[in-house]
């Protein structure tokens, strides 16, 4: 296990390139954050604006979905393809999301006796 640790000294040029790259990446993260705040704002505003619920509910669910994808891929670094076993991780996360979705469908459709 110990032998799997690789520490290599980067050249000055590589180091500076990485540093600049990581700074640019951080700027992108701030933009992502701004988008999330914006989406949240729209969701709250849409509800307060008093449109018909059948119109708003799909929209705010969609906004939530977009925010979650942003969190997963930007903030939680799933877009970084050099993450160890990132494909397997994605498979598990999306399986979980799919299973969660079936729960929602089941519990909103077939849980009640009387309503249908």
């Amino acid at each position: 296990m110990g032998h799997e640790t690789h520490v290599e000294v980067r050249t000055q040029a590589q180091y500076e390139y990485d540093k600049a790259h990581s700074r640019a990446h951080m700027r992108k993260q701030v933009v992502n954050f701004a988008i999330m705040i914006f989406l949240t704002f729209i969701a709250f505003a849409a509800v307060l604006a008093d449109f018909s619920p059948t119109f708003i509910i799909p929209i705010i669910l969609l906004l939530a979905g977009i925010q979650v994808v942003l969190q997963l891929y930007a903030f939680m670094h799933l877009e970084d393809r050099s993450t160890h076993m990132v494909g397997v991780i994605e498979f598990f996360i999306w399986s979980a999301a799919f299973i969660a979705f079936t729960f929602f469908v089941a519990f909103t459709t077939i849980i009640w006796w009387g309503n249908y």
């Binding site: 729960f103 089941a106 849980i111 006796w113």
Partner: peptide
């Protein structure tokens, strides 16, 4: 409450 919820959760 709804007793069917348990049945769903249990069989899931």
């Amino acid at each position: 409450g709804n007793t069917i919820i348990w049945e769903h959760l249990f069989w899931i």
